[in-house]
Design a protein around this nucleic acid. Structure first.
Lengths: 217, 217
DNA sequence: GTCTATACGACGATAGAC
DNA sequence: GTCTATCGTCGTATAGAC
């Protein structure tokens, strides 16, 4: 970190905050277009030419900004979305109950953005191949989520009597339930109430779910 | 069904059990190759030329036997595998406890065939697109599974006291858990004990899991 | 009925001109 | 920074040899 600044001694201009070049704006346009098209049609059905066209250039032009090609573009879309969730999930000022509230909110929002949910669902399974471009990304993602929910569930389990289930195992189950519900919901949206099944599961864990009993207002 | 037999009157030979033509054998070789390649690399990464090559002919030759192309080949692979599971899952001579035993066995077998598990996991999420070749297949598959486990869980819930959860909702949760555990297990096999987490969940439902307490012998 | 040869359009990707 | 041109591969389709 100590060497990140410009150090050219002979030049009078230290190359300062030349933020937001034309290329940066183009990059953003491309990622915007990619996010919208991926959300609507998934990853595989969208071509680089489609994305570039929606952003107003050719596919070769887009490749100049994202040398990694379609894969890199995908990662940028994922990271941007993840940042939003991370901000609400990992707010350290919140307690365990607030964190569960946030989870409920994310589930409710997901139910309104099937495109992006489908993208994540497809990718998290494609990425099981070790050499998939998003493999380490998803491995790490699940690791973090598991740790996060294990902490929350462990905290809440302390509130009540009875046998104490392993919080890490419960976190694995919770995440698995969320993913699996999405699979069924994407296939047949009308038959699956993701929010309801999540609350059911929390109740099975012995958590007081009365605060979420009625439908979201 | 009444018209399935040969009816040629003038010929002395009624074209009887001329089973297993050369084409049938070729068909089988192609499906075998497709199953192996799909299991190893998924559906999308495998080309029709790869499959045909592994079966010893050109891609055009394979298209003669499967005019539906790659899609039809996929369905044949899925149907063949499903037949095996269906035989053990839907045996009407078994009671609810036996059915859960069968489920445990399938989970244990799955833990030894990651390729095929990965194929199913990827496909069931790809197939969320309405026009995917396997969409209706998976929709129906989940419908059947849900009905199956709802019956089992409803039966077992009757055995014990306390509040009666909706069997259909519990079945959705059970299937979701199985799918979601697979996703995590495929990404990081060492960190996930699918059998253990399944038993945990059954215990949460109030089912006596003492019969599965120790590791499989 | 079984299969090869060949061609089409679209894809991801690269090289090099402007 | 963006383009055109080009490559190899994909799924698919058709004609015709055997």
């Amino acid at each position: 970190m100590a060497t990140s600044g410009p150090v050219r001694a002979t030049s009078g201009s230290p190359i300062p905050a030349k933020r937001y070049t034309k290329g940066d704006r183009t990059k953003e346009r491309i990622v915007d277009a990619a996010a919208e098209l991926f959300s609507k049609s998934g990853y595989l059905a969208v071509s680089l030419r489609d994305i570039a066209g929606a952003a107003g250039l050719t596919h070769a032009g887009a490749l100049h900004h994202f040398p990694g090609g379609k894969d890199e573009l995908l990662m940028r879309v994922l990271e941007r979305r993840d940042q939003i969730d991370a901000d609400v999930l990992f707010d350290e000022h919140l307690d365990a109950w607030d964190h569960l509230d946030q989870l409920l909110h994310i589930v409710e929002r997901n139910a309104m953005t099937p495109g992006l949910v489908a993208l994540y669902a497809k990718l998290s399974n494609e990425a099981s191949d070790t050499d998939h471009p998003a493999h380490t990304y998803f491995r790490r993602r699940y690791e973090i989520l598991r740790e996060h929910f294990a902490g929350i569930l462990g905290e809440l389990a302390g509130d009540r009597p009875g046998p104490r289930p392993d919080p890490d195992a419960a976190a694995q189950q919770l995440i698995a339930l969320l993913d699996g519900l999405q699979t069924q919901w994407l296939l047949a949206p009308d038959t699956i109430d993701m929010r309801g099944r999540l609350i059911d599961f929390l109740a099975l864990l012995g958590i007081d779910t009365s605060r979420w009993e009625s439908d979201p207002g």
